[in-house]
Structure formats: C-alpha cells, structure tokens
Design a protein around this nucleic acid. Structure first.
Length: 185
DNA sequence: TGATTGATCGTCT
DNA sequence: GACGATCAATCAT
C-alpha cells in the first residue's frame, strides 16, 4: 500500500498538488509519527506565504532544493514543519494520525488522548520534537522517513486556517472524515 | 458550542 | 516596535 522509495521529483511540483498527494502518507521523525492527515499549500506569489516578500534568513529553506524541511517558530512558541516544493513554495504539515511512538508523543505533549497529540501544526511540532535543528534537512535522510501511498485516499479540501491574507484559496487538504484533523472541513 | 485572551519570542520594518 | 501559517484556558451563551 505504501512505497518507501520516492523521487525528489515528487516535490518538484506545485505545492497544491503535493499537498493533496501527501494526504495518507506515512511520516516519522526518529521513528515517531504516523499518517499525514492534514496539509496546506503555500506558493511564491501567495500573500499568506512566508516566501511572498522574497528570501530572508528565516525562510531561506523555502527557496532551497525541493524535498527538504522548512521549519519556523510560530507565535514565539510553536515549531511548525513544512515540506519544500518548487522554489518559494511549501506544504505545511497540519495534522498526523498517531501511529508510531505514541507513548513518546504523549510524554512530549503532556496529553494522553491520541486525538490531541498531532491535530494542529504546533502540536505536530511538539509531538515529533521538531525544532530549528532540522530546518533545511533533506526529507529522504534520517531522522525523517516518508512513505507515499500507492493510491490516493478520499480527500477533503477547504480554506486555509489562521491566515489574514489570500484567504480565498482552497489549499487546505485533509483525510476525508478523519477525526485527527485540526478542525472540520 | 463559541468567543476571547494570555503566553512568548524571533523576524522584519 | 509590531506582528504572526498557534494553543489552551477561561468566560459567555
């Protein structure tokens, strides 16, 4: 059902397509993780994207090679994980269905309920111990492990969450009827 | 069930 | 000096 080996060309595409194709993929950091249940796409000419105003020290990974991580600190306290696609575009990982290392995630999060472990970008960062040390690292090497689904699962799409600009694009994607998404579609 | 607010700090103006 | 691609607690309805 999953293919462990994939090509960098998977990410060398528009972030909207990649975001949709990542739903249902298996993703772990040092063996801790699960099934990607929710994503959002951010593009170069997208006012809501960190890349919109051009490359800076913080967002430089977004302009680097595809299939690498772009990680930033949100609101001074939440680490958020993106997968870089074409230059200036990336996919934000918003929710994961916990599957491996659940006890580790429970300890890191200080929460037992599985539905609350990875349902939201800040929660994903905390559960998977994401921080700036992984910023710019390739997704095809340790500590990351990504396996793509052979067949695309049923997907919902909707408007992106938590932004104030370019709010009208339906570039949020989620596993249909999954209880692990950050909010309903 | 929904709205509001405090926490917290790196980044860019 | 202002502002977030957020979360959790609290208060209101």
């Amino acid at each position: 059902m999953y293919r462990l080996t994939w090509d960098v060309s998977f990410f060398a595409r528009g972030a909207v397509e990649v975001a949709a194709d990542l739903i249902g993929a298996e993703f772990t950091v040092s063996g801790v993780g699960g099934i990607i249940a929710e994503t959002e796409a951010y593009l170069p000419d997208d006012a809501a994207s960190h890349s919109f105003a051009g490359a800076t020290l913080r967002n430089r990974a977004m302009f680097g090679p595809p299939a690498h991580a772009y990680i930033y600190l949100s609101y001074g306290l939440h680490w958020c994980l993106n997968f870089v696609c074409l230059p200036g575009s990336a996919v934000l990982i918003r929710a994961i269905e916990p599957k491996w290392g659940i006890e580790t995630m429970q300890a890191r999060r200080g929460v037992r309920e599985e539905r609350l472990l990875c349902s939201g970008p800040g929660r994903v960062g905390q559960a998977l111990a994401i921080n700036r040390e992984q910023d710019g690292l390739p997704l095809y090497e340790k500590p990351f492990l990504l396996s793509l689904p052979v067949k695309r699962p049923p997907i919902f799409s909707g408007l992106r969450v938590g932004i104030t600009k370019a709010v009208d694009h339906p570039w949020r994607f989620g596993l249909a009827n999954s209880p692990f998404v950050s909010r309903k579609f």
